[in-house]
Amino acid sequence: MRYELTDLRLFLAIAEAQNLSAGAAAVHITASAASYRLKNLEQAMHTPLFVRAARGMELTPAGETLLAHVRELFVNIERMHGEVGRFSAGLKGHIRLLANSSSLNGFVTRAVSRFLIANPDINIELEERASHTVLPSIVAQEADVGICAGTVESADMRVLRYAVDELVVVTPPGHALAGPDPIRFVAALDCDFVSINRSTSNFQFLRETAQRAGKHPNVRLHAHDFDAVLSLVADGVGVALVPRSVASEALARGSIAAARLDEPWARRELQLIAPPADRLPGFTETFIQFLVNDPRVVATRGDVLSACG
């Protein structure tokens, strides 16, 4: 079985254009040369790849199967060129990480900072994503590692338990909601809120959860980050729904208080998603183990609620 990468690139172009001449033009060869290369590819595969129909070139079942593999092949080739090309810029590694807002602000950013300091030859591209988009993005190879909240099942990806957190309603000290007994979330919805910006998964969760309770949260201000939200709460502007991990330092200082929530969704299981180790560069696997074994997240994987009290 002998064929060239050019043959596969031509096959992809014809499949996408559903036309031999258009496919040939896309890879800058003549139609006659394209016809010759396609015939050789079909002979190498021992099966027809297209049916010549009135509407143009239609894939056979074998062609459909080949198309899926060829698309994945070229994605991997582009990724290979990008990663190898970084060596010319003096970089030895590049990792793309997606994380939902709770994990990003509560755990991930600090761990990434320590990893980068310890590994000066590695760069990390970090992006916030809503939890439900993380697994599909890793499967589609848009990123190398993902962290999200909730239950995740995948036959192709590793799913590692990362951390356990809880959502709480933070309030100014002495607020009526802040007491020893957990509250239902609907009780907080009568209060004014502050939140981070509208595009974040944290605000989207606040809005959707309130809507399920038949309410609309009165958000007085959308701040640029959680630190600003906590400062506004401390000043008495409103209350906020945040992960306890984000609020832990302010709670320890006493600048804010917290109301535990008697809601099943308040406990947040955070999962790390990644391809199998044999499909990743060694430095990416090292990064994954660094995240999973970070003492701060390891400490949460017991009974986080009793530990945080």
Rank of each mutant, 00 (worst) to 15 (best):
E4Y: 09
T6D: 15
L8D: 05
A13E: 03
A15C: 07
Q18P: 06
I29A: 08
A31W: 03
S35Y: 13
L38Q: 12
N40T: 08
E42A: 13
R52W: 02
A53N: 08
G56H: 12
L59H: 13
E64W: 06
F74P: 11
E78D: 15
E78W: 04
M80F: 10
H81V: 07
E83I: 04
E83S: 08
V84A: 12
R86Y: 06
F87P: 01
G90W: 01
K92W: 05
H94P: 05
L98S: 09
L98Q: 08
S101F: 04
L104V: 02
G106W: 04
V108A: 06
L116D: 00
I117F: 10
I117E: 15
D121E: 13
N123K: 10
I124E: 06
T133V: 03
V134K: 06
P136K: 04
Q141E: 13
G146R: 01
S154E: 09
S154I: 04
M157I: 09
R158I: 00
Y162F: 13
L167K: 10
V168T: 03
V170E: 10
P173T: 04
H175F: 00
D181E: 08
P182E: 00
R184W: 02
A187E: 11
A187G: 03
L189Q: 11
C191I: 00
F193L: 03
F193N: 05
S195E: 03
I196G: 00
R198F: 00
T200V: 04
F203C: 06
L206K: 10
R207F: 08
E208Q: 12
A210Q: 08
A213T: 00
G214F: 05
P217E: 00
V219D: 07
R220G: 13
D225N: 14
F226W: 01
D227P: 03
A228R: 12
A228K: 13
L230A: 01
S231A: 14
L232C: 09
G236I: 01
G236V: 01
V237H: 15
V237S: 15
V237R: 15
R244T: 04
V246W: 01
V246N: 09
E249M: 07
A250K: 12
A252P: 07
A252M: 11
I256D: 11
A258R: 14
E263W: 03
R268K: 09
Q271N: 14
L280N: 12
G282E: 14
F287E: 08
I288G: 06
L291Q: 06
L291A: 04
V292S: 03
N293Q: 06
D294M: 04
R301K: 10
G302V: 07
A307M: 11
C308D: 06
